[in-house]
């Protein structure tokens, strides 16, 4: 809809520089897509792991009040295992940017 509105307002004027990323007064015709360093792969994996952890915590949260302490302990063990993984990554400098 917005596109149609925009189209109805008139033709776009073709001008140089319009479609080039703004770089503080310089032209930047090169795309900025570069290869990421492999450490970001590690971050992504870590995120995925903890994202899954979080996903498992949702249903747990639903039944937690009902189940009580046992649920807490179970989840605690689960979190502890994952936390150990985090600590391992930390010690192996997996979280280091440089």
């Amino acid at each position: 809809m917005l596109y149609l509105i925009k189209q109805s307002l008139g033709k776009t004027l073709e001008e140089p520089g319009k479609d080039i990323p703004a770089e503080s007064g310089n032209l930047a015709p090169k795309p900025a897509w570069l290869r990421y360093h492999v450490r970001y792969y590690g971050y992504a994996l870590l995120f995925l792991a903890f994202d899954m952890e979080m996903a498992y915590m949702y249903p747990w949260a639903v039944v937690y009040q009902e189940v009580g302490l046992l649920a807490l302990l179970d989840m605690g063990v689960f979190l502890m295992i994952l936390f150990l993984g985090l600590v391992y990554t930390w010690t192996q400098l997996g979280l280091k940017r440089q």
């Binding site: 770089e23 503080s24 007064g25 310089n26 930047a28 090169k30 900025a32 570069l34 290869r35 360093h37």
Partner: peptide
Amino acid sequence: MEWSDVQFGPFH
């Protein structure tokens, strides 16, 4: 790795 050339300024 690839390096990129970027200009910061003069109107940054």
